[in-house]
Simulated assay, not measured.
Amino acid sequence: MDVTMLIVPMRSTTTTDGVLVTARSVEGELRSRIDALGIVHPRSTGAFEMSRLPGTARILIIPESARVSARIRNRFYDRLTDVVVVGPSSRPVTLQIEGAPLVEIPLSPLDWARLTTVAATAVSDRIVGASDLGIKCLDGVADREANDIARFAITRLADAVVARGTASLDTTTTTLIAQLTALIDEGLVYDAATAAEQVLTTPHNLRRIALRWFGFPPKTLLMRRRFIAALGRFQETGMNFTAITQFGYFDASHFLRDANRFLGTTPRRYLRRMDGSSGGKAASIRTV
């Protein structure tokens, strides 16, 4: 029997007058992204290690028959239970997994704004219980049959997101969250001042928005996006440093400084460790 991790992307967006907004459909819209990404990783029975690159927050739903421990920076979580939220991260999140499949659901900043009133920066590079953030809609989900957890969780989350909507946020704030998300995803801007100009706000206000719903200052978010994209290209080209210049890196030392910041090690060591944890099969960089 294989052990799997099912990753369900939570974010659902449409474009209205050039602004990304969360879609209003419930289960069907969210479930469609399971097939769109197709991220179901078969694993041999027994314990294995999985590394998640720095990125947005995510929910982990852990069945009773699974044992999962985690490490972020110098924080070690011996055994995660039920439903936890991995906060926005600036370093890799390492998971030690044994037993039944667990479900992983990435959360966009707009999802965060609709699910909790806690500032994202309060849980950056940390793992907390979902109920500690006021996310009660997933209570009891981990107790269901393993094959039913993902479907049930998606339904519960979708209902909660739609029910809350944007009632707690003004239109300007919602627009800025969506615009900054799009700007980061595009990966064409590398500095906070330019980002503020492009979304027509002040650097101070952009920083406030970023810390509150993204977990980090704009500069960190932009640098993280650039580094992850460059790391993916670095891997694709057989670890060739010349491939990173298109991402605004002046030389290898510039890239290595960011690697130390976001990986805590060199790119080569991290990628080789990923390959080792995937049983010798090359692991690909994912930016979802």
Rank of each mutant, 00 (worst) to 15 (best):
E29M: 02
L157E: 01
A153Y: 00
T116H: 03
R224S: 05
A193P: 09
N205G: 06
T166W: 12
F247Y: 15
T172R: 15
L115K: 00
I244W: 05
L263Y: 02
T194F: 15
V123C: 03
A120C: 07
P109E: 09
T201A: 04
R52E: 10
P42F: 01
L53G: 02
T15I: 15
S89Q: 10
L222E: 03
R261N: 08
S44V: 11
T155K: 11
A100T: 11
V288N: 10
R126S: 10
A252N: 10
L221R: 05
T81G: 03
Q179T: 08
T4G: 01
R52N: 11
T116L: 03
T287G: 04
D191L: 11
M239C: 07
S131L: 02
A66R: 02
L20C: 08
G215H: 00
L183P: 10
Y249A: 05
T237E: 10
L138G: 00
I105D: 04
S51C: 12
D258A: 06
G280N: 09
L37K: 10
R43I: 03
D258I: 05
G280R: 06
A113F: 05
I72W: 04
I177G: 05
R164W: 07
T202Q: 03
L107W: 09
V19E: 06
P217D: 10
T175C: 11
V93P: 04
M239F: 06
